[in-house]
Structure formats: structure tokens, C-alpha cells
Nucleic acid binder design. Structure first.
Lengths: 107, 107
DNA sequence: TTGATATTTGAACAGATATTCATGTATTTG
DNA sequence: CAAATACATGAATATCTGTTCAAATATCAA
């Protein structure tokens, strides 16, 4: 296995990407267009927020290459970027669902 | 594949965990005790921060079950929790290293 | 017990950030 | 052209969060 974290810049990029996923609204936006491409307004409606806020978040997700964008007429199609995003979310779900919690602690 | 994100509470827990990984200092702490258990002071020295700050972060990582703790005399051994953490970091690294960036954009 | 080491905890502050609202831009339709 | 639709953008703000410092706790040694 390759050592992770030896590169300083890489840690910066990684944390930036994790940080983006660390907001409930933004994660719901990403999940909304995980399996199928969607328009901004549809995402906004599905998540239950304004189109403006949706656009703000999509811009950040796009800059981090977590979603890709494509114009269709006057609408914009957004979809989750690559399969690593999917895999990462899968591992995270597996971690959260982890059964053998030797000690639970309320924050 | 199982659908992700249908459960509201699960999204909350997942974002909370992602948020913890989204801080450079905290991620470096986690990386420091990824492959071997380490004492707080050693982690602090390795990362280059105070023991106090290290302890603050380790408490959060522990609450999210990202690390496990074990007392050894008057020292505390911390180590990354399960293999999902490793897998998740691997997928994230793969995403960041992704070659086919169709369009780069500066934030 | 007293002192030293290792870690934890709490409060306070400074900086970051998600959200809202108003405005601007692009694209299509009449 | 003008009007309408769909997004994007910028500024302002209220909240959150990482960090520091001081003090507390725990464990061991003498």
C-alpha cells in the first residue's frame, strides 16, 4: 500500500474536499445527483432549498471536481463526477454503520 | 448497490464525520496514527502542534469512532479505528489524483 | 505525601463559512 | 426587440469552529 499524507499539498486538497462533504446541505446536493444528472432547480426542490444556495454549493462541488456540469439549453445538468466519489461514500456509510463499537460516547 | 442518503439521521452522522476529516490538522493527526498506534505527545510532536490541541482533536475523532484509545500507564495510545477509514482515505486520494480533469477551475 | 509527567478540560477569541437577498448574466420564446 | 426562465454572482451577516492559554486530572516515582 502506498503511504498517504507524505505530501503536504495533497493533504490540503484532500481536507478541502472532505470539508465540502462535511456540510449536510452540500452532501444532500451531491447525493441528489449521484446516480443521475439533474437540473439545478430540480436539485433545489428535492433538497428543499433556494436555487441560489444550490448554485453556490454546486460551484464549490464543481471546483473540487466532485460534480461535473453540462449546459442543456438554458438549464444546467449536474452529475457526480467519478466512481471514486461513489466508493468513498460507500466506505463512509460502512464506517457509520459499523457494528462493533467498543465504547459509545456522546459528544 | 444500496441507495445512500435515504435516511436523514444517517446523512447527519456522515456529514459530521466528513467535517472532522475536513480540517488539515485533524487529518494529519489521523494519518499519524493510521498504521500504528501512537501516544498523544508523539502525535503532537510529529504534527507539530501542542499536546492540548492534539487532545482536543483526538477527542472529536474518538467520538466519531475514527480512532480508538487505550491507556498504557500514564500515556494514551491512539490508533485509527477500522479498515473503512483506510479504504475511504484511499478512495479520496484516488479522486484527488484523478487524471482526466475535463476542466480545471480555480476557486 | 510531594513532585513530575502525560493528558484532559474549559473558557475566550479570532477567523472562517453557510445562508439570505438583491442583482447580474445567459438562453429561449413571442 | 422585449419578456421570461434558469442560473450565477456579490455583499452582508449571524453562526460556527479551530486555536490558545490556564487550570485540572490521572498515573507513576521517590
Amino acid at each position: 500500500m502506498r503511504r498517504i499524507g507524505s505530501d503536504q499539498d495533497q493533504v490540503t486538497v484532500i481536507t478541502e474536499t472532505f470539508r465540502l462533504l462535511g456540510d449536510p446541505t452540500r452532501l444532500r446536493i451531491l447525493l441528489a445527483c449521484l446516480f443521475e444528472a439533474k437540473y439545478v432547480n430540480d436539485v433545489a426542490t428535492e433538497v428543499g432549498i433556494s436555487a441560489s444556495l444550490t448554485s453556490h454549493h454546486l460551484r464549490l462541488l464543481r471546483a473540487a471536481r466532485l460534480v461535473r456540469a453540462e449546459r442543456q439549453g438554458r438549464q444546467m445538468l449536474y452529475v457526480a463526477a467519478d466512481e471514486h466519489v461513489n466508493g468513498m461514500l460507500g466506505e463512509m456509510v460502512a464506517h457509520v454503520r459499523h457494528p462493533d463499537a467498543e465504547e459509545e460516547e456522546s459528544v
